[in-house]
Design a protein around this nucleic acid. Structure first.
Length: 468
DNA sequence: CGTAGCCCCTGGAAGC
DNA sequence: TGCTTCCAGGGGCTAC
Protein backbone atom coordinates (compact mmCIF):
# COMPACT_ATOMS: atom_id res chain seq x y z
CA UNK A 1 0.00 0.00 0.00
CA UNK A 2 2.53 2.59 0.91
CA UNK A 3 3.90 4.96 -1.68
CA UNK A 4 6.97 7.14 -1.23
CA UNK A 5 5.54 9.46 1.47
CA UNK A 6 4.23 6.56 3.56
CA UNK A 7 7.54 4.68 3.33
CA UNK A 8 9.35 7.87 4.35
CA UNK A 9 7.09 8.13 7.41
CA UNK A 10 7.69 4.45 8.20
CA UNK A 11 11.42 5.18 8.08
CA UNK A 12 11.02 8.09 10.50
CA UNK A 13 8.78 6.11 12.86
CA UNK A 14 10.79 2.89 12.82
CA UNK A 15 14.29 4.42 13.08
CA UNK A 16 14.10 5.21 16.81
CA UNK A 17 12.82 1.70 17.49
CA UNK A 18 15.76 -0.14 15.96
CA UNK A 19 18.75 2.17 15.49
CA UNK A 20 21.53 1.32 18.00
CA UNK A 21 19.69 -1.88 18.90
CA UNK A 22 21.37 -5.26 18.50
CA UNK A 23 19.43 -8.15 16.98
CA UNK A 24 19.38 -11.14 19.32
CA UNK A 25 17.09 -13.47 17.46
CA UNK A 26 15.07 -13.60 14.25
CA UNK A 27 11.93 -15.68 13.83
CA UNK A 28 10.87 -16.19 10.23
CA UNK A 29 7.20 -17.16 10.32
CA UNK A 30 6.80 -17.12 6.56
CA UNK A 31 9.86 -18.22 4.62
CA UNK A 32 8.78 -16.78 1.26
CA UNK A 33 8.85 -13.27 2.70
CA UNK A 34 12.65 -13.52 2.69
CA UNK A 35 14.17 -13.56 -0.79
CA UNK A 36 17.00 -16.03 -0.58
CA UNK A 37 17.77 -18.45 2.24
CA UNK A 38 16.07 -17.44 5.53
CA UNK A 39 18.80 -19.23 7.53
CA UNK A 40 21.54 -17.22 5.82
CA UNK A 41 19.45 -14.08 6.37
CA UNK A 42 19.18 -14.73 10.09
CA UNK A 43 22.74 -15.92 10.60
CA UNK A 44 24.15 -12.76 9.03
CA UNK A 45 22.04 -10.41 11.10
CA UNK A 46 21.98 -11.95 14.57
CA UNK A 47 24.47 -10.05 16.72
CA UNK A 48 24.54 -7.06 14.37
CA UNK A 49 23.54 -3.57 15.49
CA UNK A 50 21.44 -1.31 13.29
CA UNK A 51 23.22 1.94 12.46
CA UNK A 52 20.58 3.73 10.36
CA UNK A 53 17.69 3.38 7.93
CA UNK A 54 17.56 4.70 4.38
CA UNK A 55 14.96 4.88 1.67
CA UNK A 56 14.97 4.88 -2.13
CA UNK A 57 11.58 5.23 -3.78
CA UNK A 58 9.34 2.76 -1.95
CA UNK A 59 12.23 0.59 -0.74
CA UNK A 60 13.33 0.78 2.87
CA UNK A 61 16.85 -0.25 3.86
CA UNK A 62 18.16 -1.23 7.32
CA UNK A 63 21.94 -0.78 7.65
CA UNK A 64 23.99 -2.75 10.20
CA UNK A 65 27.42 -2.36 11.78
CA UNK A 66 28.64 -5.61 10.20
CA UNK A 67 28.29 -4.16 6.69
CA UNK A 68 25.04 -6.00 6.07
CA UNK A 69 21.87 -4.35 4.75
CA UNK A 70 18.24 -5.45 4.67
CA UNK A 71 16.42 -4.28 1.55
CA UNK A 72 12.69 -4.35 2.25
CA UNK A 73 9.55 -3.51 0.32
CA UNK A 74 6.20 -3.22 2.07
CA UNK A 75 4.18 -3.75 -1.13
CA UNK A 76 0.45 -3.49 -0.40
CA UNK A 77 0.05 -4.23 3.30
CA UNK A 78 3.48 -4.56 4.89
CA UNK A 79 4.05 -2.76 8.21
CA UNK A 80 6.78 -2.66 10.85
CA UNK A 81 5.43 -2.69 14.39
CA UNK A 82 7.09 -2.58 17.77
CA UNK A 83 5.93 -5.41 20.02
CA UNK A 84 6.46 -5.02 23.76
CA UNK A 85 7.86 -7.94 25.83
CA UNK A 86 4.48 -8.90 27.32
CA UNK A 87 2.64 -8.71 23.99
CA UNK A 88 1.87 -11.60 21.65
CA UNK A 89 2.95 -11.64 18.03
CA UNK A 90 0.19 -10.33 15.80
CA UNK A 91 -1.77 -12.63 13.55
CA UNK A 92 -0.03 -11.36 10.45
CA UNK A 93 3.55 -11.30 11.71
CA UNK A 94 5.82 -12.77 9.01
CA UNK A 95 9.31 -11.97 10.32
CA UNK A 96 10.04 -10.97 13.92
CA UNK A 97 13.31 -9.34 15.04
CA UNK A 98 14.12 -9.76 18.76
CA UNK A 99 16.07 -6.72 19.99
CA UNK A 100 18.52 -6.31 22.86
CA UNK A 101 16.08 -4.12 24.84
CA UNK A 102 13.55 -6.93 25.04
CA UNK A 103 11.27 -5.38 22.44
CA UNK A 104 10.54 -6.96 19.08
CA UNK A 105 10.26 -5.38 15.67
CA UNK A 106 7.60 -7.28 13.77
CA UNK A 107 7.12 -7.26 10.03
CA UNK A 108 3.35 -7.68 9.61
CA UNK A 109 2.01 -8.40 6.19
CA UNK A 110 -1.56 -9.62 5.81
CA UNK A 111 -1.42 -10.18 2.06
CA UNK A 112 2.09 -11.62 2.03
CA UNK A 113 3.26 -9.44 -0.86
CA UNK A 114 6.05 -7.75 1.06
CA UNK A 115 9.66 -8.90 0.74
CA UNK A 116 12.96 -8.64 2.58
CA UNK A 117 16.38 -9.41 1.24
CA UNK A 118 19.90 -9.54 2.66
CA UNK A 119 22.59 -7.50 0.91
CA UNK A 120 26.06 -6.05 1.52
CA UNK A 121 26.75 -2.42 2.34
CA UNK A 122 29.26 -2.16 -0.51
CA UNK A 123 27.01 -3.61 -3.20
CA UNK A 124 23.39 -3.23 -2.14
CA UNK A 125 22.80 -0.39 -4.58
CA UNK A 126 23.66 -2.82 -7.36
CA UNK A 127 20.91 -5.30 -6.38
CA UNK A 128 18.41 -5.65 -9.20
CA UNK A 129 15.52 -4.19 -7.19
CA UNK A 130 17.38 -0.90 -6.74
CA UNK A 131 19.22 -0.54 -10.05
CA UNK A 132 15.89 -0.61 -11.85
CA UNK A 133 14.61 2.47 -10.06
CA UNK A 134 14.41 5.84 -11.76
CA UNK A 135 14.80 9.21 -10.05
CA UNK A 136 12.63 10.48 -7.23
CA UNK A 137 10.63 13.54 -8.33
CA UNK A 138 12.58 15.83 -5.95
CA UNK A 139 15.86 14.93 -7.64
CA UNK A 140 14.80 15.47 -11.24
CA UNK A 141 16.63 18.37 -12.89
CA UNK A 142 15.93 20.20 -16.13
CA UNK A 143 18.28 17.95 -18.12
CA UNK A 144 16.64 14.83 -16.67
CA UNK A 145 13.25 16.03 -17.87
CA UNK A 146 14.60 16.22 -21.42
CA UNK A 147 15.84 12.63 -21.11
CA UNK A 148 12.53 11.42 -19.70
CA UNK A 149 10.74 13.15 -22.55
CA UNK A 150 12.94 11.41 -25.13
CA UNK A 151 12.31 8.06 -23.49
CA UNK A 152 8.58 8.66 -23.25
CA UNK A 153 8.26 9.35 -26.97
CA UNK A 154 8.90 5.68 -27.67
CA UNK A 155 6.23 4.36 -25.32
CA UNK A 156 2.58 3.94 -26.15
CA UNK A 157 1.27 2.67 -22.83
CA UNK A 158 -1.13 4.92 -20.86
CA UNK A 159 0.73 7.67 -19.00
CA UNK A 160 -0.67 6.32 -15.74
CA UNK A 161 0.96 2.92 -16.32
CA UNK A 162 4.20 4.64 -17.31
CA UNK A 163 4.25 6.58 -14.04
CA UNK A 164 3.34 3.54 -11.94
CA UNK A 165 6.30 1.69 -13.37
CA UNK A 166 9.19 2.79 -11.17
CA UNK A 167 11.90 2.62 -13.82
CA UNK A 168 11.71 6.23 -14.98
CA UNK A 169 10.36 8.07 -11.95
CA UNK A 170 10.16 6.31 -8.62
CA UNK A 171 7.89 7.00 -5.66
CA UNK A 172 4.45 7.45 -7.18
CA UNK A 173 1.83 4.76 -6.60
CA UNK A 174 -1.83 4.46 -7.41
CA UNK A 175 -3.04 7.32 -5.19
CA UNK A 176 -0.43 9.91 -6.03
CA UNK A 177 -0.39 9.16 -9.77
CA UNK A 178 -4.11 9.95 -9.89
CA UNK A 179 -3.50 13.14 -7.91
CA UNK A 180 -0.60 14.23 -10.12
CA UNK A 181 -2.51 13.61 -13.35
CA UNK A 182 -5.48 15.54 -12.00
CA UNK A 183 -3.21 18.44 -11.03
CA UNK A 184 -1.62 18.46 -14.48
CA UNK A 185 -4.96 18.00 -16.25
CA UNK A 186 -3.75 14.96 -18.14
CA UNK A 187 -6.09 12.06 -18.85
CA UNK A 188 -4.66 8.85 -17.30
CA UNK A 189 -5.15 6.93 -20.54
CA UNK A 190 -3.19 9.38 -22.66
CA UNK A 191 -0.59 7.39 -24.61
CA UNK A 192 2.81 8.25 -23.18
CA UNK A 193 4.18 9.28 -26.57
CA UNK A 194 1.67 12.16 -26.67
CA UNK A 195 2.98 13.70 -23.44
CA UNK A 196 4.80 16.92 -24.34
CA UNK A 197 7.98 18.34 -22.82
CA UNK A 198 5.87 20.95 -21.11
CA UNK A 199 3.59 18.24 -19.69
CA UNK A 200 6.65 16.52 -18.26
CA UNK A 201 7.75 19.71 -16.54
CA UNK A 202 4.32 19.94 -14.92
CA UNK A 203 4.23 16.24 -14.01
CA UNK A 204 7.61 16.48 -12.28
CA UNK A 205 6.77 19.75 -10.53
CA UNK A 206 3.41 18.53 -9.22
CA UNK A 207 4.81 15.13 -8.23
CA UNK A 208 7.47 16.77 -6.09
CA UNK A 209 4.95 19.20 -4.61
CA UNK A 210 2.32 16.55 -3.81
CA UNK A 211 4.79 14.02 -2.38
CA UNK A 212 6.40 16.72 -0.24
CA UNK A 213 3.06 17.86 1.18
CA UNK A 214 2.07 14.26 1.79
CA UNK A 215 5.24 13.66 3.81
CA UNK A 216 4.54 16.83 5.80
CA UNK A 217 1.05 15.54 6.57
CA UNK A 218 2.41 12.21 7.74
CA UNK A 219 1.35 10.34 4.59
CA UNK A 220 -2.12 9.23 3.64
CA UNK A 221 -4.15 6.85 5.74
CA UNK A 222 -6.56 4.88 3.63
CA UNK A 223 -8.38 1.81 4.87
CA UNK A 224 -6.50 0.53 7.89
CA UNK A 225 -2.94 1.29 6.91
CA UNK A 226 -0.77 2.81 9.62
CA UNK A 227 2.96 3.41 9.53
CA UNK A 228 3.22 2.28 13.13
CA UNK A 229 1.10 1.63 16.18
CA UNK A 230 -1.35 4.42 16.79
CA UNK A 231 0.17 6.55 14.06
CA UNK A 232 -1.74 7.74 11.05
CA UNK A 233 -1.18 10.44 8.47
CA UNK A 234 -3.68 13.04 7.35
CA UNK A 235 -2.95 13.55 3.69
CA UNK A 236 -6.05 11.60 2.62
CA UNK A 237 -7.97 14.73 3.69
CA UNK A 238 -6.22 16.66 0.94
CA UNK A 239 -6.68 14.14 -1.85
CA UNK A 240 -8.65 15.59 -4.74
CA UNK A 241 -9.56 12.56 -6.82
CA UNK A 242 -8.42 9.27 -5.24
CA UNK A 243 -11.39 7.52 -3.64
CA UNK A 244 -13.77 10.26 -4.76
CA UNK A 245 -15.43 8.72 -7.81
CA UNK A 246 -19.03 9.87 -8.11
CA UNK A 247 -18.30 13.13 -6.27
CA UNK A 248 -18.09 16.57 -7.83
CA UNK A 249 -14.76 17.73 -9.22
CA UNK A 250 -13.24 20.54 -7.13
CA UNK A 251 -12.39 22.57 -10.24
CA UNK A 252 -15.57 22.19 -12.27
CA UNK A 253 -19.05 20.77 -11.96
CA UNK A 254 -18.32 17.42 -13.59
CA UNK A 255 -18.61 14.17 -11.65
CA UNK A 256 -15.33 12.32 -11.06
CA UNK A 257 -15.20 9.06 -12.96
CA UNK A 258 -13.66 5.72 -12.09
CA UNK A 259 -12.06 3.49 -14.65
CA UNK A 260 -9.38 0.82 -14.79
CA UNK A 261 -5.83 1.29 -16.09
CA UNK A 262 -3.58 -1.72 -16.29
CA UNK A 263 -5.68 -3.47 -13.68
CA UNK A 264 -5.57 -0.57 -11.21
CA UNK A 265 -8.52 1.56 -10.22
CA UNK A 266 -8.22 5.08 -11.60
CA UNK A 267 -10.21 8.17 -10.73
CA UNK A 268 -10.16 11.29 -12.88
CA UNK A 269 -12.27 14.23 -13.97
CA UNK A 270 -13.64 13.64 -17.48
CA UNK A 271 -13.96 17.38 -18.01
CA UNK A 272 -10.65 18.68 -16.61
CA UNK A 273 -8.62 15.75 -17.92
CA UNK A 274 -9.59 15.61 -21.59
CA UNK A 275 -8.17 12.68 -23.43
CA UNK A 276 -5.82 13.82 -26.16
CA UNK A 277 -5.38 11.06 -28.61
CA UNK A 278 -4.92 10.24 -32.22
CA UNK A 279 -8.04 8.12 -32.02
CA UNK A 280 -11.12 7.91 -29.87
CA UNK A 281 -13.43 5.03 -29.13
CA UNK A 282 -16.96 6.01 -28.21
CA UNK A 283 -19.92 4.01 -26.95
CA UNK A 284 -23.60 4.78 -27.33
CA UNK A 285 -25.81 3.08 -24.78
CA UNK A 286 -29.43 3.13 -23.70
CA UNK A 287 -32.62 1.08 -23.75
CA UNK A 288 -34.16 -0.45 -26.86
CA UNK A 289 -36.12 2.13 -28.77
CA UNK A 290 -34.38 5.16 -27.26
CA UNK A 291 -32.83 6.32 -30.53
CA UNK A 292 -29.31 4.84 -30.39
CA UNK A 293 -29.34 3.67 -34.00
CA UNK A 294 -30.33 7.10 -35.31
CA UNK A 295 -27.40 8.66 -33.46
CA UNK A 296 -25.04 5.93 -34.61
CA UNK A 297 -26.08 6.67 -38.16
CA UNK A 298 -25.36 10.37 -37.69
CA UNK A 299 -21.81 9.42 -36.72
CA UNK A 300 -21.53 7.16 -39.75
CA UNK A 301 -22.60 9.93 -42.12
CA UNK A 302 -19.91 12.16 -40.62
CA UNK A 303 -17.19 9.64 -41.45
CA UNK A 304 -16.90 7.76 -38.17
CA UNK A 305 -16.43 3.99 -38.15
CA UNK A 306 -19.57 2.52 -36.61
CA UNK A 307 -20.57 -0.84 -35.22
CA UNK A 308 -23.81 -2.11 -33.73
CA UNK A 309 -23.62 -4.74 -31.01
CA UNK A 310 -27.04 -6.02 -32.07
CA UNK A 311 -25.55 -6.85 -35.48
CA UNK A 312 -22.62 -8.53 -33.77
CA UNK A 313 -25.03 -10.67 -31.73
CA UNK A 314 -26.99 -11.54 -34.89
CA UNK A 315 -23.80 -12.86 -36.45
CA UNK A 316 -22.82 -14.71 -33.28
CA UNK A 317 -26.17 -16.50 -33.27
CA UNK A 318 -25.23 -18.04 -36.61
CA UNK A 319 -21.98 -19.51 -35.29
CA UNK A 320 -21.90 -23.22 -34.63
CA UNK A 321 -20.16 -23.01 -31.23
CA UNK A 322 -22.57 -20.33 -30.01
CA UNK A 323 -25.61 -22.35 -31.10
CA UNK A 324 -24.19 -25.33 -29.26
CA UNK A 325 -23.47 -23.34 -26.08
CA UNK A 326 -26.99 -21.93 -26.00
CA UNK A 327 -28.61 -25.29 -26.67
CA UNK A 328 -26.63 -26.78 -23.79
CA UNK A 329 -27.50 -23.98 -21.40
CA UNK A 330 -31.18 -23.53 -22.23
CA UNK A 331 -32.16 -27.03 -23.35
CA UNK A 332 -33.17 -25.68 -26.75
CA UNK A 333 -32.68 -27.41 -30.06
CA UNK A 334 -31.67 -24.63 -32.45
CA UNK A 335 -30.15 -25.99 -35.63
CA UNK A 336 -28.09 -23.59 -37.76
CA UNK A 337 -29.05 -20.42 -36.01
CA UNK A 338 -30.38 -19.24 -32.66
CA UNK A 339 -33.96 -18.02 -33.01
CA UNK A 340 -33.89 -14.66 -31.25
CA UNK A 341 -37.64 -14.51 -30.69
CA UNK A 342 -37.89 -18.03 -29.34
CA UNK A 343 -34.97 -17.34 -27.01
CA UNK A 344 -36.67 -14.18 -25.78
CA UNK A 345 -39.72 -16.20 -24.78
CA UNK A 346 -37.52 -18.36 -22.57
CA UNK A 347 -35.99 -15.27 -20.95
CA UNK A 348 -39.36 -13.72 -20.23
CA UNK A 349 -40.63 -16.92 -18.67
CA UNK A 350 -37.61 -16.98 -16.34
CA UNK A 351 -35.84 -13.66 -15.93
CA UNK A 352 -32.93 -15.33 -14.10
CA UNK A 353 -31.98 -16.84 -17.44
CA UNK A 354 -31.14 -13.37 -18.78
CA UNK A 355 -28.00 -13.30 -16.67
CA UNK A 356 -27.01 -16.74 -17.90
CA UNK A 357 -27.39 -15.66 -21.50
CA UNK A 358 -25.42 -12.48 -20.86
CA UNK A 359 -22.62 -14.52 -19.33
CA UNK A 360 -22.25 -16.35 -22.63
CA UNK A 361 -22.88 -13.50 -25.05
CA UNK A 362 -21.19 -10.47 -23.47
CA UNK A 363 -17.61 -11.78 -23.51
CA UNK A 364 -18.04 -12.87 -27.13
CA UNK A 365 -19.39 -9.46 -28.13
CA UNK A 366 -16.51 -7.79 -26.34
CA UNK A 367 -14.05 -9.91 -28.27
CA UNK A 368 -15.70 -9.02 -31.57
CA UNK A 369 -15.64 -5.32 -30.71
CA UNK A 370 -11.94 -5.47 -29.86
CA UNK A 371 -11.19 -7.17 -33.19
CA UNK A 372 -13.28 -4.61 -35.03
CA UNK A 373 -11.50 -1.70 -33.33
CA UNK A 374 -8.13 -3.14 -34.31
CA UNK A 375 -9.14 -3.51 -37.94
CA UNK A 376 -11.05 -0.30 -38.59
CA UNK A 377 -9.14 2.64 -40.02
CA UNK A 378 -10.98 5.87 -39.11
CA UNK A 379 -9.63 7.63 -36.03
CA UNK A 380 -13.11 8.04 -34.58
CA UNK A 381 -14.91 4.83 -33.83
CA UNK A 382 -18.38 4.47 -32.36
CA UNK A 383 -20.04 1.33 -31.06
CA UNK A 384 -23.66 0.97 -30.05
CA UNK A 385 -23.76 -1.20 -26.91
CA UNK A 386 -27.24 -1.43 -25.31
CA UNK A 387 -26.00 -3.10 -22.11
CA UNK A 388 -22.65 -1.37 -21.81
CA UNK A 389 -22.49 -1.37 -18.01
CA UNK A 390 -24.08 -4.77 -17.45
CA UNK A 391 -21.52 -6.22 -19.84
CA UNK A 392 -18.76 -4.39 -17.94
CA UNK A 393 -17.47 -2.93 -21.16
CA UNK A 394 -17.52 0.76 -20.27
CA UNK A 395 -13.82 0.81 -19.40
CA UNK A 396 -12.66 0.15 -22.93
CA UNK A 397 -14.33 3.31 -24.23
CA UNK A 398 -12.94 6.83 -24.06
CA UNK A 399 -16.36 8.46 -23.90
CA UNK A 400 -19.86 7.18 -23.34
CA UNK A 401 -23.03 8.72 -24.73
CA UNK A 402 -26.28 7.66 -23.07
CA UNK A 403 -29.66 8.01 -24.70
CA UNK A 404 -32.94 7.98 -22.81
CA UNK A 405 -36.45 8.64 -23.95
CA UNK A 406 -39.94 8.52 -22.51
CA UNK A 407 -41.22 7.38 -25.91
CA UNK A 408 -39.38 4.06 -26.20
CA UNK A 409 -42.56 2.02 -26.03
CA UNK A 410 -44.23 3.90 -28.88
CA UNK A 411 -41.14 3.54 -31.04
CA UNK A 412 -40.86 -0.17 -30.36
CA UNK A 413 -44.48 -0.66 -31.30
CA UNK A 414 -43.93 1.15 -34.59
CA UNK A 415 -40.77 -0.80 -35.36
CA UNK A 416 -42.16 -4.29 -34.80
CA UNK A 417 -45.63 -4.59 -33.31
CA UNK A 418 -45.21 -8.33 -32.93
CA UNK A 419 -42.24 -8.32 -30.51
CA UNK A 420 -42.75 -4.86 -28.97
CA UNK A 421 -44.39 -6.12 -25.79
CA UNK A 422 -41.63 -8.64 -25.08
CA UNK A 423 -38.84 -6.15 -25.68
CA UNK A 424 -40.60 -3.63 -23.47
CA UNK A 425 -40.72 -6.23 -20.73
CA UNK A 426 -36.98 -6.88 -20.98
CA UNK A 427 -36.30 -3.13 -21.14
CA UNK A 428 -38.15 -2.77 -17.85
CA UNK A 429 -35.78 -5.20 -16.16
CA UNK A 430 -32.73 -3.09 -17.01
CA UNK A 431 -31.96 -0.17 -14.79
CA UNK A 432 -30.52 2.35 -17.20
CA UNK A 433 -31.22 5.22 -14.86
CA UNK A 434 -28.63 4.09 -12.31
CA UNK A 435 -25.85 4.45 -14.86
CA UNK A 436 -26.61 8.08 -15.65
CA UNK A 437 -23.81 9.32 -13.43
CA UNK A 438 -21.25 7.36 -15.43
CA UNK A 439 -22.09 9.01 -18.74
CA UNK A 440 -20.03 11.67 -20.47
CA UNK A 441 -22.99 12.86 -22.54
CA UNK A 442 -26.69 12.35 -22.00
CA UNK A 443 -29.18 12.77 -24.83
CA UNK A 444 -32.83 13.06 -23.88
CA UNK A 445 -34.76 12.03 -26.92
CA UNK A 446 -38.28 13.16 -26.12
CA UNK A 447 -38.96 15.47 -29.01
CA UNK A 448 -38.65 15.35 -32.82
CA UNK A 449 -36.12 13.64 -35.04
CA UNK A 450 -34.73 17.09 -35.89
CA UNK A 451 -34.15 17.72 -32.22
CA UNK A 452 -32.33 14.39 -31.86
CA UNK A 453 -30.14 15.17 -34.87
CA UNK A 454 -29.27 18.60 -33.51
CA UNK A 455 -28.30 17.13 -30.14
CA UNK A 456 -26.12 14.43 -31.67
CA UNK A 457 -24.48 16.94 -34.05
CA UNK A 458 -23.45 19.01 -31.08
CA UNK A 459 -21.78 16.04 -29.38
CA UNK A 460 -20.08 14.95 -32.60
CA UNK A 461 -18.47 18.39 -32.83
CA UNK A 462 -17.27 18.29 -29.25
CA UNK A 463 -15.74 14.84 -29.75
CA UNK A 464 -14.04 15.92 -32.96
CA UNK A 465 -12.45 18.81 -31.10
CA UNK A 466 -10.96 16.33 -28.60
CA UNK A 467 -9.05 14.65 -31.37
CA UNK A 468 -5.39 15.47 -31.51
C1' DC B 1 11.50 -5.62 -28.05
C1' DG B 2 6.99 -3.57 -25.71
C1' DT B 3 2.69 -4.61 -23.80
C1' DA B 4 -1.49 -6.77 -21.71
C1' DG B 5 -2.85 -9.70 -18.50
C1' DC B 6 -2.22 -12.89 -14.95
C1' DC B 7 -0.21 -13.95 -10.62
C1' DC B 8 1.32 -13.70 -5.82
C1' DC B 9 -2.21 -13.44 -1.02
C1' DT B 10 -5.93 -12.24 2.56
C1' DG B 11 -9.99 -10.02 4.21
C1' DG B 12 -13.55 -6.39 4.19
C1' DA B 13 -17.40 -4.50 1.72
C1' DA B 14 -20.94 -4.77 -1.40
C1' DG B 15 -24.18 -7.45 -4.06
C1' DC B 16 -27.59 -11.11 -4.22
C1' DT C 1 -28.21 -14.65 7.18
C1' DG C 2 -25.09 -16.79 4.27
C1' DC C 3 -22.99 -17.06 -0.09
C1' DT C 4 -20.54 -14.93 -4.07
C1' DT C 5 -18.01 -11.40 -6.24
C1' DC C 6 -15.25 -7.55 -6.30
C1' DC C 7 -11.79 -4.70 -4.72
C1' DA C 8 -7.42 -3.26 -2.42
C1' DG C 9 -1.65 2.82 -1.71
C1' DG C 10 2.70 -3.18 -5.64
C1' DG C 11 5.34 -5.28 -8.80
C1' DG C 12 7.17 -9.65 -11.13
C1' DC C 13 6.51 -12.98 -14.69
C1' DT C 14 4.77 -14.88 -19.02
C1' DA C 15 2.71 -15.25 -23.48
C1' DC C 16 1.95 -12.80 -27.38
Amino acid sequence: MPELPEVEIVKQVVSPLIVNRRIEKIVVLRRQTILGDPEVFSKNLIGATCTHLSRIGKYLMFHFDNQKVIISHLRMEGKFYEILPDEKDSKYARVVFYLDNGHRLSFDDMRCFGIMKLADEQTYLKEKELTKLGLEPFDIKEKDIALIYQKSKERKIPIKSFLLNQETITGLGNIYVDEVLFATKIHPHTPTNLITLNDWKKIVEHSARILTSAIKAGGSTVKSYHPGKGISGDFQLFLKVYGKAGQKCLNCDAILRKTVTGGRGTTYCPHCQIKRNSSLLIAITGPAGSGKSTILNNFKVRGFATLSSDDVVKELYKKENVVRLINEKFGTDFKNEVDKNALRQILIADSKKIKELEKIVHPLVKKEIITWVKNSKPSLKVVEVPLLYEAKMSNMFDYVIGVISDKTNERLALRDPHSAKDIQQINALNQFSQYKKNLDFLIENNSSLDDLNRKSEKIINILKSYLN
